[in-house]
Amino acid sequence: MGFKILAINPGSTSTKIAIFEDEKAILTHTLRHSAEEIARFPHIIDQLEWRKEMILDALKSKNIDVKSLAAVIGRGGLVKPIESGVYEVNEALKNDLTHAQREHASNIGGLIAEQIAREAGVKAYIADPVVVDELQDVARISGLPECPRISIFHALNQKAIARRHAAKIGKRYEDLNLIVAHMGGGISVSAHCKGRVIDTNNALDGDGPFAPERAGTVPAGSLVSLCFSGKYTQPQIVKMLAGKGGLVAHLGKNSVQEICEKDIAGGDKHSKEVLDAMSYTISKAIGAMAVVLKGQVDAILLTGGVAYNEPVNEVIREHCSFLAPIVIYPGEDEMEALALNALGVLKGEMTPKVYA
């Protein structure tokens, strides 16, 4: 029998759980949460007990005894900037997850993991949260001292895909220069230099390519005018940047698959124009990261749910194939990435870091 690991990934309208036995998933399950259910809770932290009990009930219904677990790992939240790696959930981490800088469902991943791990008599971990910060110093400086550039990106999936690619070609991640574009509801494009992400766009609230739900970089003067037009409140502007920007703002939908298979296939020229523009901004970001790596790029990796859509990939190929080979790893298997990080600790291949 191998190590049995529970991985937990809370999202805004769902909680994904998976049981892995070593590298193999033996159970995957998604708990759906309606808008009405979520609306009962003023803050995400208030959902902690509710989501935990749902997970425990689901495990019980699948005849999974928590006492059989070797470790529990949850998706990391918006804590302070930290190095890439696996972190044991300690009191300092619990405090910063509870009082996170911003509301996000991922904040309760580590907290749920810690409570279930306590019942199981094992340790709880998080790995590669979105606040992983390995930026080189020059990448932090913007044109306004009051607005430094910060590292918020899809660290968990990007790091996992980069390592998978390295293993596939028989090399170490730490020996490669890679550009990884995670293309989901938000899009992050990052320069991986010998195992460290030395530059990336803030994929959360207004930097880089526009995305299915994010506005990305927009003309600063126009944004200032919008803010002071008197037409919108601050929360409305924030939502326009993250949640109702990008494809949602232009086309009223965030599904790239639907846009490709229904709208564009049906002859909708505007939908094609907007999707091509999004793909174009991704391409420009990839080009910028090639400059960050001084042209020494071993491969460009496209990942995330949007990478399933060939019309997007093709535009990127047209613009970027001269830079380096483009390899597509569609989807975002965050559950496997979480489990493999915990497994690395259990096997003694990785040393958990201490959050302080």
Rank of each mutant, 00 (worst) to 15 (best):
I286L: 11
L204Q: 02
L343Q: 01
V89D: 03
L31K: 13
I45R: 10
K94T: 02
I316P: 02
L144Y: 09
V72E: 04
M289K: 11
A39R: 06
K80Q: 11
D133I: 08
S68M: 07
V306W: 00
P10K: 04
I126V: 15
I126G: 08
E258D: 07
G195C: 05
R118A: 15
K123I: 07
Y280S: 04
S229F: 06
P212T: 00
G121R: 06
V248P: 00
T303I: 03
I116N: 05
G184V: 06
D65Y: 13
R317D: 01
L204T: 00
G246S: 03
Q115E: 14
G246I: 02
N90Q: 11
A342G: 05
R164D: 10
V315M: 12
D65E: 13
G195D: 01
V224G: 03
S222M: 14
Y355M: 13
K269T: 07
A265S: 05
L78G: 03
T30W: 12
K80N: 11
M335K: 04
A120H: 01
V66G: 02
K60I: 09
K244P: 00
N313T: 02
Y232D: 02
V315W: 06
K94V: 04
D46A: 12
I282H: 04
A25E: 08
K52D: 08
H43R: 15
P81A: 13
E213N: 02
